[in-house]
Write a protein that binds this DNA or RNA. Structure first.
Lengths: 237, 237
DNA sequence: ACAAAAGTGTTGCCCGTACACCCATGA
DNA sequence: TCATGGGTGTACGGGCAACACTTTTGT
């Protein structure tokens, strides 16, 4: 087969920005690079695009290799391309953002990569342009979560309303009135009240809720309003 | 310098989805390919990423080559990567969306590419996965324009309120109450009323307005509400 | 004079916000 | 019994949508 002539072929990398929420803080899953350059420095989990796979497949593969998880919420964010972003040789990097239930991950931890969950405000220095990727991902998450129920992807199967609210309050660094928040969230019909309570964080105990997946899917695209108008973030682009 | 070993290097293309608005219809600028494969078929304007440029620079270069325009509103949309999307050899394509004032373009037309503006509902068949790109771009434009004053990028320096309203009505295929629309738009302080009128589309004539660029930049990130709630589009991802 | 498009105000309703007390339980 | 966090209702106000007539001017 004839090829395009006189064009430069370069490497394509995938990097995954993996968010989790532990009940009070957002965390990022980072690895310690096992190969040069920048060996042993902290980095996003990544890999190179292989000949027979699409970028989405590559991202799934990379995420699974690190966490063991499949069918995780993940979407392509942005492609980074500064000519000198990788000092070894020219590489463009397609960044993916994944939101995972931090509990699920804990069971599947693979130690091959020296992975570690870092709280968002205590991130180590990262290699290459990975900090830029993380900053963009944070800003996009804030933007998107203000409009769509995307943060639910970070929750375990059963969670409490205070837990959910803490997740929003932490992301927007604000306090939300719990009566208004509860009313808004429940009015979407996306939550199902369970019979059991979570007694780990109070004496009275807080009822567990779970997601009504049908409602969730139907309403995922809807523009919501869990965040008071004044606290709305800016677009990032 | 040492390179990464055993990894596949592939071509990276840039494709530009170029939107215009002629006063009543949205249009897309397409070219007739001058080289194989699919020679003479209609296609998005594109090119290959060169060794010393970033993707943004490549997109600017490609857009300028076709239209002569610089400093145009353009942003990276998505990277397409199906292994067989280009039959010649594996190529990933980074799609950029540009919004241009169709009047400006007319003066600068470059005939090298047999370019033509097609109305959005009369698009020809496109090569490769370019239709998928266009569909995603349409859907993202609808989403983003419902929240941010991005469509102003399509307007000439002076335009009328009926012109502006037609642009929104066409994109959302809906009728908007002109009293409510005017009030909302003017309340942003982004528009400056000019002294002259446009008499081409009515006997009475409609006042020209222009953009207050300071206000526009300040408010670009704000979440707006020109579109009635019921007509709000869905997210696309 | 009439046709065709531009311009302009008011009302009602709904949604979003502010706000404070009681409940359940373990220690 | 008391301390801790969970759960609930109301009233007010602003913003959004619905709605129709007058103005201008070219023909």
């Amino acid at each position: 087969m004839i090829k395009y002539s006189n064009q430069t072929r370069i490497l394509t990398a995938i990097d995954c920005i993996i968010f989790g929420f532990d009940g009070s803080d957002y965390k990022l899953l980072l690895i310690q690079r096992g190969f040069a350059p920048e060996k042993e420095k902290w980095s996003l989990m990544g890999g190179f695009l292989q000949p027979s796979e699409s970028l989405d497949e590559a991202a799934d593969r990379v995420l699974k290799k690190l966490t063991g998880l499949e069918n995780v919420y993940m979407e392509q964010m942005h492609t980074f391309s500064k000519p000198d972003r990788d000092p070894v040789e020219r590489t463009i990097a397609v960044a993916y953002v994944a939101l995972i239930d931090i509990q699920k991950y804990k069971k599947q931890i693979s130690n091959d990569f020296h992975a570690h969950w870092f709280p968002m405000n205590e991130l180590p220095n990262l290699i290459f342009d990975h900090e830029e990727m993380v900053n963009m991902a944070k800003s996009r998450l804030r933007y998107k979560a203000a409009l769509h129920p995307i943060l639910f992807e970070l929750l375990p199967a059963k969670f409490t309303l205070p837990h959910l609210q803490a997740m929003y309050e932490s992301l927007y660094e604000t306090n939300i009135d719990k009566r208004n928040f509860t009313r808004k969230v429940l009015s979407t019909n996306m939550l199902v009240k369970e019979k059991e309570k979570d007694k780990t964080s109070s004496k009275k105990g807080a009822f567990y809720y779970s997601i009504d997946k049908t409602q969730y899917k139907d309403q995922f695209q809807t523009v919501l309003n869990f965040i008071p108008r004044n606290e709305m973030p800016n677009a990032n682009e």
